[in-house]
Design a protein around this nucleic acid. Structure first.
Lengths: 337, 337
DNA sequence: TTGTATGCGTTATCAG
DNA sequence: CTGATAACGCATACAA
């Protein structure tokens, strides 16, 4: 059923029906009610493509996901889009997800711009001086960066968690508990968030006069086996750490597994502090953590992007959330040697 | 840049340019080359909405994700769409992801049909006698079910793993190792796959003359804390099992955590067999498993759906994969009592 | 092999 | 408050 047929049923012009459905003020209450209830009755929905063509709006938000980079298509992303999608669908938007080979990412954005297939984009996993940011600016697509990239160029909209402070506080907590050898299992350090986390860790150590020890610092993709093998290796070195600071609950599961395998009790023998994205499928209160819900982040990102689409000429929006430091069961005082 | 402008640059009609770009045979090699290189040079891409409107094809595959049902928006889904998206993007398709409140699912499908916003749909998480299947049939949208629903109605296209046989074999393996008390930590049993898995488990037990014991059987969402708490509870009952059969590696992580907490060694004290979807972020060889890559499933589903879109009148496509039984480090002979 | 004219289903402009 | 008509950008039947 299209508009023409539908308006014929109602004995109205297409124009009036369209206006009634789109909430234009000039149509009479009576007509509007008649149209709206008929739309439900006949299950009439305007064709998306035609509407897009006429308005220039696609009512879609794009996500470009490089396939080889596990950092983006990962379980954290799932919880993120659960939040994003929830907000978007309330506003009538859907998500256009494109999977690309790593080297096809730029082309994908150019494509979107040229085809006008999305009204905005959420940019995931920013790196330092991420080239995608100037690209999107050049293309003129509204976009919001989930995270930040230390760029000196023109400002852009972003949403981020204060990773530096979160990890500084987490490290301070461990230091206050008497820990002086604290291992860091970070994410990949070409990702901006990982750089900031490392910086927070370093700042806290420096303040306490503790020297950095690269032999107990790692940087890899946040997967369980990484946490396991890094812990096995680090704990079997001479002078092992008494605490671990871990970038996500996923590798932390591996850390815990390794400790148990080594006969060590979390909290009692070795303390663990993690950054907790509050993933829905993993335990919540197992670890002491700097906590910040990734799903809520997804919601907020969607809201900010929609605002930006609404006011294209407004200055860039930025928002920085503080993580909450939660004391769980995985930390305890350092043992005196 | 639109077709009109682009064709004026080339001094050709819109028709010829369109044909050259869409691979029609009648256009001369020379013209085609000229058009194609100019398209690259001027970065011309046809507008998606206009193309869709003219052809009736949206070049999009839909996923409808109910937000409250964790069973669908979960880390397994992530790996699935990584596979799906990879295949689709090669064919020029993208994915339209819509998040809906649980009760809005039917409306979302009706909406898609009415708006013609997708060319096909992948249906996730089928239940027994799933009402979405007749709905999609009624709406006339090509669709492929990932999994099956025991429906007596008209046939439909599906892709599935032989869950029943996988769990039967897994159970047999444990029985062969001398285990007679085998706990089952299943997924939610209103999901079709969970029903089939339970059936496989029951068949193997029946063959071996072992009676079912509901006190060591659970059915919940496949999350880590579920594995942990179910194991803690089951192992502290009188006459605890000597083996666990677990629906996914995620709750299995919890099983393992519980066993270690209870001072029990996997394989040695208690055996664990899981179904392993080969999630990218969790350990691969930790458990003895019936293994079947969820990412490959995603790929195959995409291929099958595309075939179906191509030949709308062909009979439904179905495909059943057998899982591979992999011996890992989590199984051993039952201890003699 | 190329071009002309029309339709796809909306929204937007302008007139009444 | 309502309606006729022109875009929107492309594909395609038909003509040359």
């Amino acid at each position: 059923m299209n508009l023409k047929q539908f308006s014929e049923i109602l004995n109205l012009s297409q124009t009036t029906v369209s206006r009634a459905l789109n909430g234009f003020p000039e149509v009479s209450e009576k007509t509007r009610n008649r149209v709206q209830s008929a739309a439900i009755q006949y299950n009439y929905h305007p064709n998306t493509q035609a509407k897009s063509l006429a308005t220039g709006k696609s009512m879609a938000i794009g996500h470009v996901l490089p396939v080889n980079k596990q950092e983006i298509i990962n379980p954290i992303f799932t919880d993120f889009i659960a939040g994003t999608g929830e907000i978007l669908s309330r506003s009538g938007y859907h998500m256009a997800v494109t999977v690309v080979e790593d080297e096809g990412e730029e082309a994908a954005y150019r494509d979107m711009a040229s085809k006008k297939s999305v009204d905005g984009v959420i940019l995931h996993g920013p790196r330092e001086n991420d080239s995608r940011i100037p690209l999107l600016q050049e293309l003129g697509i509204p976009f919001l960066v989930h995270g930040r990239a230390q760029t000196t160029e023109t400002p852009y909209s972003w949403f981020d968690v204060n990773n530096c402070r979160a990890f500084k506080k987490a490290t301070e907590l461990l230091i206050d508990l008497g820990h002086h050898r604290i291992a860091l299992l970070n994410g990949l350090e070409y990702m901006d968030f990982a750089v900031r986390r490392r910086r927070g860790y370093e700042q806290a150590l420096a303040q306490a006069g503790i020297e950095l020890d690269p032999s107990i610092m790692r940087s890899e993709e946040m997967m369980e086996p990484y946490g396991f093998s890094a812990t096995m290796q680090i704990m079997q070195q001479p002078n092992p750490p008494t605490a671990f600071l871990v970038s996500s609950v996923i590798p932390a599961m591996g850390v815990q597994r390794a400790l148990l395998k080594l006969g060590l009790q979390p909290a009692k023998d070795v303390s663990i502090v993690i950054h907790d994205d509050q993933l829905s499928f993993l335990p919540a209160d197992l670890f002491t953590a700097s906590r910040s819900s990734i799903k809520d982040a997804g919601k907020r990102c969607a809201q900010m992007l929609l605002e930006q689409i609404k006011n294209p000429n407004a200055p860039p929006l930025t928002e920085l959330w503080e993580a909450e430091l939660i004391i769980g069961e995985s930390t305890g005082p350092a043992k005196n040697k």
